[in-house]
């Protein structure tokens, strides 16, 4: 009896994946982004072990709720930005502009990003990410994910992505893409920042992706933007300022 159920479950799973694969998927995924400030500060060259311990002691038990983002995807296109806040008791703060648009069919992107208080618009061809596929599995929101790794030379970060081939959309949060399935989690520098899927909704019919008609920002080439970031990090560290107070980690 038990075996029968298992087989049918397996069969159902297969059917599901077939039906999923048969058409390009659409829906929304909510991601939660958390940043571990203590760990980030610990890596700054002028911070002593005593400072690190002190921060762990004082702030280590504080739990951050993180911030919610939403990826909407349809027809191999995706938009990633802040999730509209639900009612919260606290005061509202202005957020830095952040809009990541990917068209995997045309292999093109449009980003609206902040750089130290200034808004930039970056357009171009999706750069190829050099992913290494690792031998690790884990489950995120009911999906078995595999682990992949890449290195971001601009910010000096090791990026781990957990993707699932059960969702045949070759993108993910923060513009990461190029893996054989949807990325459900991004982990930067071993937990300094974790962006993880908290809600996956494949049933909502998306009529149109929430792309604004006009995307403001100073036009800049990706390479030039990357250069600004590398320079800013180097300069901040030289001046003993944590660059990540001003940059998205």
């Amino acid at each position: 009896m038990m075996n029968h159920i298992k087989i049918s479950v397996l069969g159902l799973l297969m059917l599901m994946s077939i039906s999923i694969t048969a058409q390009s998927i659409e829906g929304t995924i909510t991601y939660n982004r958390k940043t571990d400030w203590i760990s980030i500060m610990s890596k700054l060259p002028w911070v002593t072990q005593e400072d690190i311990d002190r921060r762990k002691l004082t702030w280590g038990n504080e739990e951050s709720k993180g911030r919610d983002y939403m990826l909407s995807f349809k027809d191999d296109k995706s938009v990633y930005s802040y999730k509209k806040e639900e009612a919260s008791v606290g005061y509202s703060w202005k957020k830095d502009p952040y809009l990541i648009i990917r068209d995997h069919r045309k292999n093109s992107f449009i980003d609206q990003r902040d750089f130290v208080g200034k808004t930039y618009k970056i357009e171009g061809e999706i750069p190829k990410t050099k992913w290494k596929i690792l031998n690790e599995l884990k489950e995120i929101q009911g999906y078995i994910c595999m682990k992949a790794e890449t290195y971001d030379a601009v910010t000096d970060q090791t990026i781990h992505a957990w993707f699932t081939d059960a969702l045949p959309f070759f993108g993910g949060p923060e513009g990461y893409s190029g893996l054989p399935g949807m990325i459900l989690e991004i982990n930067k520098n071993d937990g300094d920042a974790i962006i993880t899927a908290t809600k996956i909704d494949l049933n909502s019919d998306i009529e149109k992706l929430p792309i604004p008609k006009k995307i403001k920002g100073k036009q800049i080439e990706q390479e030039e933007y990357n250069l600004k970031i590398t320079d800013f990090i180097a300069e901040s560290i030289e001046g003993r300022k944590n660059p990540w107070w001003r940059l998205r980690y």
Binding site: I18, K130, K132, I133, A148, L179, P180
Partner: peptide, 21 residues
Amino acid sequence: QAYATVVLLEKSDSTLMEFTR
């Protein structure tokens, strides 16, 4: 096994080159 994911990797460092189903 239909719809299994097959990936082609660089042997030296497991870098992803291509994938298919």
